[in-house]
Design a protein around this nucleic acid. Structure first.
Length: 377
RNA sequence: GCUGGAAUCGUCUAGUGGCAAUGACAAGAGACUGUAAAUCUCUCGCCUUCGGGCUUCGUAGGUUCGAGUCCUACUUCCAGCA
């Protein structure tokens, strides 16, 4: 746990504007973090990410352990150097991916699973995830947690308690690795750890988990196991009222739907990450202020207007809907690139504008006008 | 001109007696939230009260309970020989 990691500039209810300070630069929050699972944001270069306004990326420990291996990333000088993204980075622990694989064997020690690439028998534990994340060298690490597949309360409670026990081991191992790294290259000596709050849709379990995590010497928090922020107002309010105010909170995996970003920010979440925007872009689903459209639809073949007239992304400024429609119909790589630029820009800018509205004290009005237009209600 | 071969959904194609008829592509639409996702799902002759009904495999006849499948003629295309 380090001082001056997070500073808050303005509050509006639970919502806040702040700055996360990392060795690779500052993140002005609330902020949308780009999903760079395999150390790349699919279909985008790092300079495109920078141009569209992204402040940080999140890579995935499970995927990087498999390929290219964490030793290689350490050898390269860490994730930021390796990927060419010399700005703030996160790594997710890999737990989420592992639990999505078939035939995983969960024990108190860790999780045994088969590589989805070559079937190799592997195991990840809280300790090995921390070691892998230190080798990868992202600025912010996420604790190795257990996300229950089930919606059953008993299963979720059990996974939550295991997550808590594993958190203690993550904290211990993270501390040991920090100790070991002190005096080495700067990027290795300042790495931060987020605990993960679980508990599903049960507010009492969420409260219990938030309390448990709040007392630990961690630098911030991930809120996991959320599948939609819509309607999760009470849960987020409960959790973020318990978590210490002076540490940042990351809403894990949320951001495909604008409402998730608004609801998350409203109740004090500072960062978000989501694969949705770029995945949907690759599949032809594009954000507009009036909702998402499928650019592959026949009705766009002759639409020579910009996707969004008031969007200043590279795609909207230079190309038309008809052109992107054509690129998708002919399966050109550029279709996915331009669509990804737009969608990623859209969510990054949406969260930026949320930050501005909190700063300006107009969040509530902004949320209402944005969402009523987007969801046409 | 002769001798072979071939004609099936927008395209290519499976099919040698029970078939509205295979697969791929194209087309139309939908899904996607800590990325095993440049992926996946559905529709794709016409009509339908979703039970079914109707019309289809170059054209016209024929054999058969039943024909895309067998027979005859014709049309068109391909290959070889002239």
């Amino acid at each position: 746990m380090l001082d001056n990691f997070f500073t808050i500039q303005k509050h509006q209810g639970l919502a806040r504007v702040g700055v996360i300070h990392t060795p690779h630069g500052d993140i002005y929050t609330p902020a949308f973090v780009g999903a760079a699972t395999r150390a790349t944001v699919k279909a985008l270069t790092m300079s495109q990410m920078q141009a569209l306004g992204s402040q940080a990326i999140l890579a995935n420990t499970y995927h990087l352990v498999l390929r290219p291996g964490t030793d290689l990333i350490r050898e390269a000088g860490g994730l930021a150097k390796f990927s060419g993204w010399n700005k703030p980075t996160f790594t997710d622990s890999g737990g989420f991916q592992i639990f999505s694989l078939p035939n995983v064997k969960i024990s108190e020690h860790g999780v045994k699973f088969k590589s989805h690439i070559d079937g190799a028998n592997l195991e990840m534990t809280p300790e090995s995830s921390m070691q892998a994340q230190w080798a990868i060298g992202a600025d912010i690490h996420i604790a190795f947690d257990h996300l229950a597949k089930s919606e059953n309360r008993k299963d979720i409670e059990e996974a939550m308690h295991r997550t808590h026990r594993w958190l203690d081991r993550c904290v211990a191992e993270h501390g040991r690795l920090r100790e070991e790294a002190s005096g080495q290259r700067p990027y290795l000596s300042e790495q931060y750890l987020y605990a993960v709050v679980q508990g599903g849709t049960f507010n009492d379990l969420r409260a219990e988990s938030a309390k448990y995590c709040a007392e630990k010497p961690v630098d911030g928090f991930g809120i996991g196991g959320v599948f939609t922020a819509e309607g999760m107002d009470d849960m987020l309010q409960t959790v973020n009222s318990i978590l210490p105010e002076n540490k940042p909170r990351h809403l894990l995996g949320m951001g495909q739907e604008p409402i998730d970003l608004f609801v998350g920010a409203e109740y004090g979440c500072d960062t978000f990450d989501c694969v949705g925007p770029t995945r949907m872009a690759r599949n032809g689903s594009l954000y507009t202020k009036d909702g998402r459209i499928n650019i592959k639809n026949a009705k766009y073949a002759h639409d020579f207007t910009p996707l969004m007239s008031d969007c200043d992304c590279e795609f909207c400024k230079n190309y038309t809907r008809a052109y992107l429609h054509h690129l998708f119909k002919t399966d050109e790589i550029t279709a996915k690139i331009l669509a990804s630029i737009h969608n990623e820009h859209f969510v990054v800018r949406t969260v930026d504008s949320i930050r501005e509205s909190i700063m300006g004290g107009t969040f509530a009005d902004y949320k209402k006008s944005f969402l009523s237009r987007y969801y046409q209600c």
